[in-house]
Amino acid sequence: MVTTLEMLAATVPNSANLSKNPPSPSSKSTTSTTGTIDDDNESSSQHIFTVAARSLKDCADLLLSIKDAVAAEKEAEQDEGKHSDVNSKKESSIKAITPCKRSEIYTKPSALACQGTIGKHVRHLHDHYRILLTSYPPCMGSDKHEWSVDYDHRSREIPMETDIDVAISELQKLQHALERCRSHPQEASSLKMTTDLSSPVKLQATIDPSHAPVTFETTFGRELWFCSLHAVHHFAMIKVICSEFGITSTEGFGVAPSTLKNRMKA
Score class of each variant (00 low, 15 high):
M7N: 12
A9V: 08
P13C: 07
A16P: 00
L18D: 05
L18T: 04
N21D: 13
P23S: 10
P25V: 10
S26G: 09
K28D: 13
K28L: 13
K28I: 09
S29R: 04
N41C: 08
S43D: 10
S45A: 15
S55Q: 08
D58K: 02
I66Y: 00
A69C: 04
V70W: 01
E80M: 11
K82W: 08
K89Q: 09
S92E: 12
S93R: 13
K95W: 02
A96Q: 12
A96F: 05
A96S: 14
C100T: 07
E104Q: 14
Y106P: 02
P109I: 12
A113V: 14
C114S: 14
I118R: 01
G119E: 03
H124D: 09
H124F: 14
L125M: 15
L132I: 11
L133D: 00
L133W: 02
S135G: 06
H145R: 15
D152V: 08
R154W: 05
S155K: 14
I158F: 06
T162E: 09
A167D: 03
S169K: 11
S169M: 14
L171G: 04
Q172C: 04
K173T: 04
L174E: 00
L178F: 03
R182C: 15
S190D: 12
L197S: 03
P200R: 07
K202A: 06
Q204A: 04
T206K: 14
H211D: 10
P213E: 10
E217D: 15
L229R: 08
H233Q: 12
I238G: 01
I238M: 10
C242L: 14
A256I: 04
P257M: 10
L260P: 00
L260I: 06
R263W: 10
K265T: 08
A266W: 05
